[in-house]
């Protein structure tokens, strides 16, 4: 993508190359932020529909502009910094959360060859960035100098570290059969219609991945870090105005990222489900698959009650960890014996 823009700009000198990188970053980030605004709207609409309410319907046609109105409201509010807070860390924390949520998108391929950086270790990069996500939360919890915020941060850190382990093992299952850590390569092995998508051979690990992704993004039923009933709002309790908005945007950008990763790993990325639909461009398929995954996230939020914290940790360490470890062994065996995948 950067290379294509570079040749479009004339293809000379480091300055133009730098410009091409900047342009491709903007080309990903701007649509992403708009998508986040609409994702919040759709999340609320789906939630409302399940509970037989109307949801946001006042601002703009069908309430479509609700998220933008909320954003404007947050932008105009005063930023309150608690007197006992550690100012620098208090302000850096939301920035870290937001930035990390954006930079993960660098390796996501939207169509064949359309990614800012087509890294050889794309999957590891995603894992690395998502393991950094915990810092925004711990730092905000500690810097707020508030018991609720700190408890929320501790819960969240423990939860994210635990579920990362099973996410890692699920990724290993896929990597072993595909034989590459490159995101585009993973999609390319799923070419040829819906039957060659990874979802069929990998259905059990997809279930583990989906549930772990819910925990990793602090979504219900695992939203204990925020748990408004017990912790008010967890690590976000002292934040107002844009600092809060950054957390909020980061959270939804992460949810969309997880949806994109599931679309790439299990649902054939930019490929059409049947060959007759190949005339529709790849990025539209990618977008549709991300939307489908997001819909699943939203539905889970609407009808699953919140877990108790000890049950959450039990599920992570005593159920998912041994299960995913067993699946690593099973899928490695299948891959080596040549039943699935293209190695062996």
């Amino acid at each position: 993508m950067v290379e294509a823009l570079y040749t479009l700009f004339g293809g000379e000198g480091p300055f133009l190359y730098f410009l091409a990188i900047l342009a491709s970053i903007f080309a990903i980030v701007l649509p992403l932020l708009i998508a986040v605004a609409f994702a919040v709207y759709f999340d609320r609409k789906i939630w409302a529909a399940v509970q037989m309410r109307r949801g946001p319907n006042v601002v703009g046609p069908f309430g479509l502009l609700q998220s933008f109105a909320d954003g404007l409201k947050l932008f105009l509010k005063e930023t309150v910094i608690p007197a006992g807070a550690n100012k620098a860390i208090f302000l850096i924390a939301p920035m870290i959360t937001f930035t990390l949520a954006l930079i993960s998108w660098a390796v996501v391929p939207f169509a064949d060859g359309v990614a800012i950086a087509d890294l050889n270790v794309g999957i590891l990069y995603l894992l690395a960035i998502s393991s950094l996500g915990v810092y925004g939360i711990i730092m905000s919890g500690w810097a707020s100098n508030s018991r609720y915020a700190f408890l929320g941060a501790l819960r969240s850190a423990a939860q994210m570290v635990s579920y990362e382990v099973s996410i890692g093992f699920v990724l290993v299952c896929i990597l072993v059969t595909v034989g590459s850590l490159n995101m585009s390569d993973i999609v390319r092995t799923q070419e040829g219609g819906i039957l060659s998508w990874n979802i069929f051979p990998f259905l059990p690990v997809f279930v583990i991945f989906f549930i772990s992704a819910l925990a990793e993004t602090n979504r219900p039923p695992f939203d204990l870090p925020e748990a408004e009933a017990e912790l008010v709002a967890g690590y976000q309790v002292e934040y107002s105005s844009m600092a809060f908005a950054l957390f909020f945007l980061g959270e939804y950008a992460n949810i969309l990222l997880m949806s994109a990763v599931m679309a790439i790993l299990f649902f054939g990325g930019w490929y059409a489900p049947v060959a007759a639909l190949d005339f529709i461009p790849g990025w539209i398929w990618m977008f549709a698959k991300i939307a489908l995954m997001f819909w699943m996230f939203a539905m889970v939020k609407a009808f699953v009650p919140r877990y108790r914290y000890d049950q959450l940790m039990r599920l992570g360490w005593k159920v998912f960890l041994p299960l995913s470890l067993a699946f690593v062994v099973i899928y490695s065996g299948l891959a080596v014996s040549g039943v699935i995948g293209n190695i062996g």
């Binding site: 590891l124 990069y125 690395a128 393991s131 950094l132 810092y135 850190a157 570290v161």
Partner: peptide
């Protein structure tokens, strides 16, 4: 050495330093 770089971030920054910070 991009593999080592990613492992450094995942293992040290993502896990060891989190416990340290705790």
């Amino acid at each position: 050495a991009e593999f080592l770089a990613m492992l450094l971030v995942i293992v040290y920054v993502g896990a060891v330093a989190v416990l340290f910070l705790f």
